[in-house]
Structures are given as structure tokens and as C-alpha cells.
């Protein structure tokens, strides 16, 4: 069955226009590695140079922000849905 990853519009062009892709892995880190191996254009937009999650994206495992779980070490199982969303911020500063 695999793990479903939902992509925001801004990342879809790097994934052949797909809104949802199916990947493999046992942790969030492995899933994102599989995702970026399949779609190299996503790599720098999801994972920072230091190997951590890019600060401009939020990654959800089902309903939970993985930063409040075990981050890239968070376990996943078949049937989980991972959502990648851009951080949305700004202001007058």
C-alpha cells in the first residue's frame, strides 16, 4: 500500500504535477528520502543543508506536526498520510 505524501501546489511541478505520490519507508526521514530520490527537484525545498527539515515547510503525519513527534525519526506505517505544507508568514517588518 505504501505511504501517501500530499504535496502543496508550489511543489507539484517538481513531482510531475502530481498532488499525491506514493512512497516507501519506515520513518519520516526514509519517506522523504524516497520522495526526493524519486523527485530530486524536491530535495532542497524539503530538507535543509544540515539534513533537518527545511524551516519553510511543515510536515504532518496524519494530523500531527512531526516537529512535535520525533521529527525525521518519527515512525510511519502503511496507510499513513503525510502532508507537506509551506510555512506561510510575512508582515510589515
Amino acid at each position: 500500500m505504501g505511504i501517501e505524501v500530499r504535496l502543496p501546489t508550489v511543489l507539484r511541478s517538481a513531482a510531475g504535477g502530481q498532488a499525491t505520490v506514493s512512497v516507501e519507508g519506515e520513518t519520516i526521514g526514509e519517506v522523504l528520502k524516497d520522495l526526493t530520490n524519486n523527485f530530486p527537484g524536491l530535495g532542497a525545498q524539503v530538507i535543509a543543508e544540515d539534513g533537518t527539515l527545511h524551516r519553510f515547510v511543515n510536515v504532518y503525519l496524519n494530523d500531527d506536526d512531526v516537529r512535535y513527534l520525533e521529527r525525521l525519526e518519527t515512525k510511519v506505517v502503511d496507510g499513513d498520510v503525510i502532508s507537506i505544507l509551506p510555512a506561510v508568514a510575512g508582515g510589515t517588518l
Binding site: 501546489t9 508550489v10 506561510v88 510589515t92
Partner: peptide, 23 residues
């Protein structure tokens, strides 16, 4: 988003952090 004391025009922060060119 609202600008409470400035014009309805994107600030440098808004531009720098704009996540999606299609938005």
C-alpha cells in the same frame, strides 16, 4: 493578511517569505 498601520501593499518580508508564485 492585514496591515494594521501601513498600506495594502506587500512588505519586503511578505515578498521574501511568499511561498507560492501561483498564489
Amino acid at each position: 493578511h492585514s496591515h494594521t498601520h501601513s498600506e495594502a501593499f506587500p512588505s519586503p518580508t511578505d515578498v521574501a517569505q511568499a511561498p507560492d508564485p501561483s498564489w
